[in-house]
Design a protein around this nucleic acid. Structure first.
Lengths: 130, 130
DNA sequence: TTCATTGGTATCCATGAGGTAACTAAGTTC
DNA sequence: GAACTTAGTTACCTCATGGATACCAATGAA
């Protein structure tokens, strides 16, 4: 980062970090990155791992990740074609915070589901009481 | 988690953790949580902090966070009204992984912007060369 | 009586993310 | 020469997200 620039700040709508931060929340991108944690994988295998993603959307996701330097795309001169996707160093570095977030989500599923039930019950009571 | 259930897995489209994981990537939710890190805040202040979010969308976001047990909403009987939003314990626990992710995004802005430039240049060369 | 304040709602509308389905290249096998 | 394979592309469509705008409730101040 140039020292003349303000520090990156996701709360600033004009700061690129905000865009990047939100890209991580992309419906498929972060899942793909986590699948790639286990090493290089080809397109069709990736599709099976991520489950129920159409080729168009998976391609879009992969192109974006490639463009952002998070993954590499290696085409093997074979027929039928073989294309491997692999995390770059940058992509691997993302894996760490992403994994913590995934673990948080997986750990707190019960708390959140409970909170939802309680919230819905309170709504019901409000309706009955009102 | 009930021991009879399979462990939570964000890669399983039927696992609630996937929905929760993706909710974190919501355009506004994770920003709101990070603003609330500094303590309780009222609606209008929150709007200023998050920047350029319409009241409708902010309300939607807050309701969802409240429903999921991440924040509390406290209405003070005043006129004009005063409503404070505050992180719950659960919300605070999310703050930790979320902050790591934010720091990752802010730290790697330059790498990603570089990667984009390189990618675009490569595209240009391919066009010129072809 | 009218305005200002705060925390929203209600309504309408545009965008785009994502889904469906069909199609292609190019060589290998039957 | 027809079918199969992988890794996509293309055209088309739908629906949810989010944005713009206007409005409201309740009360104190001017």
């Amino acid at each position: 980062m140039d020292t003349n620039e303000l520090p990156a700040n996701v709360l600033d709508p004009d700061c690129p970090s905000r865009v990047i931060f939100q890209r991580i929340g992309d419906k498929w991108a972060s899942l793909v990155v986590q699948v790639l944690a286990d090493g290089p994988i080809r397109f069709s295998e990736l599709r099976k791992m991520v489950h129920v993603v159409t080729p168009k959307v998976l391609t879009q996701t992969l192109r974006t990740l490639e463009r952002d330097g998070l993954i590499t795309r290696t085409v093997h001169a074979q027929v039928p074609p073989r294309v491997d996707y692999e995390l770059t160093e940058l992509g691997t570095s993302l894996l760490e915070p992403l994994t913590l977030l995934r673990l948080w989500a997986e750990d707190h599923v019960p708390s959140i589901l409970e909170a939802r039930d309680a919230y819905d019950d309170a709504k019901d009571e409000a309706v009955l009481g009102g």
